[in-house]
Computed example of a mutant assay.
Amino acid sequence: MKISNKKLYEKVADVIILDINEGRLNTGDRLPSIKALSESFGVGQATIREALNALRAMGYIDIKHGQGTFITEREEPRFNFEAINGDVKDIENLLEVRSIVEVGVARLAAKNRNDEDLLAIESALKDMKLAIKENDLGEASDLKFHLAIADAAKNDILKQLLLNVSDIMRHTMKETRRIYLYTKSKSIEKLYNEHKEIFEAIKIQNAQLAQSKMAFHLEEVEKVVLSNIKKTES
């Protein structure tokens, strides 16, 4: 399958996710080598590496050095996004869960991050910047950013909590970014800057500032999303 559209690694990742969801790839299956995948998709090996890193961050694969890349067992999301889409209270609850978990995750990430973690978070930021230039919503890079912070926190249980709702997070991030794009008082650029400030706080290992910046970001998202929903309902 040849892929020629922008943001190639996301397109590659989406195809592999679809193969997993539709049963063509199952838990324990070993993916072909990076070279073979590169030839199969018609893209460079660097693009395949980016796609695999994104899939690992989302919990779809496990990369075992010297052995290969394997499909992992993922729990189904606990919430049905389509079912909660029109229920303001359920969406409020979901945003509240994110706030409770991710503020703590940001604090721990600032304390425990290493240089490799910073590179992963910064990579997601660069993807967001590219999305702005290409007029793309960039929800995949948004999710990649938050999961990279979860990695940096070094707490497997907190990371698993986010992975359990990662599919729903991606949907809500997409809708949030769509609202930001068409709301005059907000912008995708502002959203990017909020993420950048979280990264900078984690980089300097200021735990209090990191949790403050994450809390502010999620509060802003909640305001925009719920305000838009209520306007739609009225």
Rank of each mutant, 00 (worst) to 15 (best):
I149R: 02
A207V: 01
F199E: 01
I198F: 04
T183L: 07
D136A: 08
H171E: 11
H195V: 01
K174R: 15
H146M: 04
E194A: 07
R177E: 09
A215L: 11
K144G: 10
I202N: 06
I188C: 04
L163C: 10
I157N: 14
F199W: 08
K184P: 08
S185R: 10
Q205R: 14
Q211P: 04
S166V: 00
L226T: 14
A140F: 07
L143W: 01
E222G: 09
A201H: 00
N164I: 02
A153F: 09
H146N: 02
K230M: 14
I179A: 02
K144F: 13
Q160A: 15
N228Y: 13
E189K: 03
K184E: 15
Q160R: 15
I157F: 15
K154Y: 12
S141Q: 05
I179C: 02
S227F: 07
N164T: 00
D167F: 07
M173L: 12
F216R: 05
L191K: 02
T232C: 11
I157P: 03
L163G: 11
L158R: 09
L137A: 04
S187A: 03
K190V: 11
A152H: 04
L226S: 08
N228E: 13
N193D: 15
I202F: 09
H195W: 04
S187D: 00
L226F: 08
D156W: 04
L191N: 02
L158H: 12
T176H: 09
S141E: 07
K159A: 01
L181C: 10
K174G: 14
A210Q: 08
D151E: 10
F145G: 00
I202E: 06
Q160Y: 10
D156N: 12
N206P: 06
I202S: 09
A140C: 10
V224K: 01
H171P: 02
E222W: 05
D167N: 14
K144Q: 13
A210I: 10
I157C: 13
I149Y: 05
T176R: 03
K184G: 00
D156K: 15
K203D: 05
D136Q: 05
K144M: 10
K196T: 08
V225W: 01
I229D: 01
N164C: 07
E197D: 12
L209P: 02
N164V: 00
N155F: 11
Y182S: 06
L209C: 04
K154G: 08
Y180P: 05
K213I: 11
E197T: 12
A148C: 06
Q211N: 08
L162M: 15
A215W: 07
A210P: 13
A152M: 11
K231Y: 12
Y180W: 07
I179Q: 06
K159N: 01
